[in-house]
Structure formats: structure tokens, C-alpha cells
Simulated scan of single mutants.
Amino acid sequence: MSALLFACSRCFSRHPFEELSPGQQLCKECRGAFPVVKCTYCRSEFQQTTKGSTSTICKKCEQNVKAYGKPTACEYCNIIAAFIGNKCQRCTNSEIKYGPPVNCEQCKQKCAFDRHDDDKKVDGKLMCWLCTLSYKRALAKTKQSDADRRHMKMSQIRNKHKDGKLRSHNKRPQRVDVTKMPPPDDNGPANKIARNGPGLTRADLDPNSSDHMVAMTQLKEQIASLQKQLTMKDAQMLTKDKHITELKAKHFTTENELRTKMKNIQKEYDTKVDAYNVRIQGLMKEVASLSKSTKRDRLSAAKESSNNSGSGTDSPNAS
């Protein structure tokens, strides 16, 4: 069976899951050609769309700069992203939705918004947007370093296990020099102590004893159990990453479809508005021409009536 391929979230080219970046699920070409940077104003991360671009302003802030000029610092979060008024758009929307801001438990500034939902908090702490991002970034780095240390520790355990096997395989059993032993005496306990060495038992001298084998077997079983748990955890993480990639691709496709639909609706609306404007202008021209013709008819009728009344007054005088 062929390996499963997953789409890059930018160019939609198919690649194995291991070749995509864990964050935005980008292929190697998109990662190298379009780096991810932070916006100078709103501080949100975005990916540059052109190779070699040095712009660090996202498209939304760029449009706002053209429309409203350079922003000022927000009175709540102090981010330089207040294009209209004294508040940035993020704090304005949060204030409308969740009420006035409260103190952040991390930076102690009054720039956090209480959503009244414990699931939205980060480790039970109420933080502002910037502190939440930095905390999650540090947490991700810690998890990555812990995973690296765990992997290194498991490698060291495997290497020690292999070295122990080699040493136990090459090591010869320790034997007592029989030439230095006292004369044999089957009736005394000194003979037994001399044959095994002072303070040593036969189990201590023999690496293949039952106690030694039981300890080695327990260690092997413990290592096998840890390796099995590690494999299961890696498989679970891989499955979750695949599911996240599929959801991101689905979200990206849905968003593009909605944008295309909105563009088509806007285009149809503009076309209808233009057609109505043209029709209104034509009707106004018709109204203007009709009003002009009506005025001419009234003037001509007034002239005829005046002429008729003048001829009617002259006829009695003439008689």
C-alpha cells in the first residue's frame, strides 16, 4: 500500500506527514520561501507572500494604514494598533463581548478580558493576549525539550543495556586461587569460607546465579514496557497531528469557498446597483424631457388663449 500523503496548507502539494511543519503544516519549499514573521503593529504572526520580502506589516494593518494613517498605542494592551480612537480592534471587540478589562495575572496590567469560562484560561490563569501567546510558546518549548531529554535518556538506557550485555558476555567468572587455600577440612566451617572466599557466597561469585538473572529479567521487562509506552505515545501524537492537519486543511478550504462566494455576491450586487443607477439616470432624463415638453405646451396654450382673447375684444369696438 502507498503511504498516505497530506496537503500543504499553502500550495496544496502532497507530501508525507513527517515532511510538513508541525505548526502550520507547510512543506519545505513554502517554509523556506515564505517565512513567518510578527506584524509590527498588531503583533500577530503572518506568513510573507513574496520571496525576499522585508515587510513586517500584515495585510490588514497595511490596509488600515492606507485608510487611517499610522496607529497609536492602545490604552488597554499598549500595542501600537489603535487605528480608530484609543483602542485596538482586538480590545474593542473583547470589551463589547466580555465587558471591561481586568488585571492580567502575568504582566499585572489591566488588559485581560474575563470570559467567565475556566476552560479558556491557561493553566487556571487569566492572562491577556500577549501573555497567553508567550506562555504557550514557552510551554511548547518546554514540552519539546522534555521530549528530547526523554528520547536521549531512553537512548542512554539502551546503550547501557547493550554495554552491560557485552561486558557480562565477555567477563569470565571469578575464581579463587586454590594454591593459597588451607588444607581441606571437611568437618570445619573454615573450609567452606576459604573455598568461597572471605565474606563471599557462591551467588556473589557467579554472574549466572538465579538472583542475578531475576534482576536482569526485571530490568529487561521494565525497559520493554517503557519502550512500548513511548511507542504508544508517539503514535497518539502522530494521530492527533494528522487530525489537526486535516481540520486545518478543511478550514482553509471552507474559508476560501466562503470568500469566493462573498466575492461573487458582492460582484452581483455591484452589477445590479450599476444597472439600477443607469436605469434611474435614463428615467430622470425622460422626466426632464417630459417636463420641458409640458412647459412648451403650456406656453403655447397660453399664447393661443391670449391671442383669442385679444381678437374677441377688438370685434365689438369695430362694430
Rank of each mutant, 00 (worst) to 15 (best):
L4T: 13
S9W: 00
F17T: 01
E18S: 06
L20M: 08
S21Y: 05
A33R: 14
K38A: 07
T40W: 02
G52V: 10
I57C: 05
K59W: 01
K59V: 04
C61V: 05
N64T: 02
K66A: 13
Y68S: 07
K70I: 04
P71R: 06
A73Y: 04
E75G: 09
C77T: 02
N78G: 03
N78P: 00
I80Y: 00
I84Q: 15
I96V: 05
N103S: 08
C107A: 03
C107L: 02
A112F: 03
F113R: 01
D114T: 06
D114A: 05
H116W: 01
H116S: 08
V122E: 06
D123Q: 12
D123H: 09
M127Y: 02
L130D: 00
C131K: 00
S134H: 03
R137A: 14
M152Y: 07
M154W: 05
D163K: 12
Q174V: 15
Q174W: 12
K180V: 13
G188D: 15
K192E: 15
R195E: 13
R195G: 08
G199H: 11
R202W: 08
A203T: 15
Q218R: 07
T231A: 15
T239D: 09
H243S: 05
K250H: 10
F252H: 10
R259W: 01
R259V: 06
K261M: 06
K263T: 13
K267L: 05
E268T: 09
V278P: 01
L283E: 09
M284I: 04
M284R: 11
S289L: 06
K292S: 12
R296G: 02
R296F: 08
D297W: 00
R298P: 00
A301L: 06
S306R: 14
N307H: 09
S309K: 15
G310H: 14
G312W: 10
P316G: 07
